[in-house]
Design a protein around this nucleic acid. Structure first.
Ligand SMILES: [Mn+2]
Ligand SMILES: [Mn+2]
Ligand SMILES: [Zn+2]
Ligand SMILES: [Zn+2]
Lengths: 135, 135
DNA sequence: AAGCGAGTTGCGAACAATTCGCAGTAGTTA
DNA sequence: TAACTACTGCGAATTGTTCGCAACTCGCTT
């Protein structure tokens, strides 16, 4: 329950709903707010969708959760600990593959050297065509 | 007017509205549907927002225009000829910088070699912190 | 030049996703 | 336990995008 501290430090509280949202995100890997709500409701049907949105935002501010963009709209949420890979999204079949961040190490270095730009490769997906769809 | 052919080949028509949307996109560099509408309306106030959406979609299908994601939601449109750079979006100040695609050449190659994944680096922005904000 | 058919437009309504306002509820600290 | 304030549920409001439809018009054919 390290999260208890993270929250209390900033005057925030650990409510059942907040805990449920966090563990849903952890269980799901990556999920949209709607998917998180659905998951939480499997055990606690009363939880409101706006509560999910608000808690995702709060958990993100505290650093326990992070969002990325895998599709053409919306956001999907990850547990912060788990966001150690980048996402390969196929525009043809819609599949989402993972790859270790180091495949981008060189690229990130280039941007830093040439533009002084510090890149977070996980925030947006890498878009293209997957191996299966290329054939 | 090369676009005339692109369109007619597929049974589509070149209407004034369509032409206006295309030249607005070309003039603006990158723009949201709303911004395109605003631009077009400076000379032709009657144009409907849904017409702009429909034409952006059509022009994209024909290959004259392309969309990218620079922000947390929505899409922004580019003229296809002009989409020869990638976008560096700063999460702190919101600025959008350009960089030639070759800075990603090595990265793209890695993904191809290791995963058979063919990357389109222009579709999603590269997210991070710009030089100005790093200091 | 006139006519026709299918693509296109404007308009309003419909939708989907996300955010707000508010009154009641419930963690936390003292 | 009392008090303070964050948080929740709920419904309404916003924002961004898509639809349905009748009227219109581009581009092709007589
Ligand atoms: Mn897209
Ligand atoms: Mn984002
Ligand atoms: Zn695929
Ligand atoms: Zn910046």
């Amino acid at each position: 329950m390290a999260e208890k501290h993270e929250l209390h430090e900033k005057g925030l509280r650990l409510t059942p709903q907040r805990e449920l949202v966090l563990s849903a995100v952890r269980a799901l890997g990556h999920a949209t707010p709607e998917e998180v709500a659905e998951k939480v409701r499997q055990t606690h049907p009363g939880i409101n969708l706006s509560t999910v949105y608000r808690n995702l935002e709060t958990l993100e501010n505290v650093g326990l959760v992070q969002h990325t963009h895998l599709g053409h709209g919306g956001a999907t949420y990850h547990a912060a600990e788990e966001l150690t890979h980048l996402h390969l999204v196929c525009g043809t079949c819609g599949s989402v593959g993972d790859a270790p961040i180091d495949v981008a190490a060189n690229f990130v270095q280039n941007l830093s050297d040439d533009y002084g730009f510090k890149t977070d490769v996980t925030h947006f997906a890498i878009y293209g065509t997957c191996a299966a769809c290329v054939k």
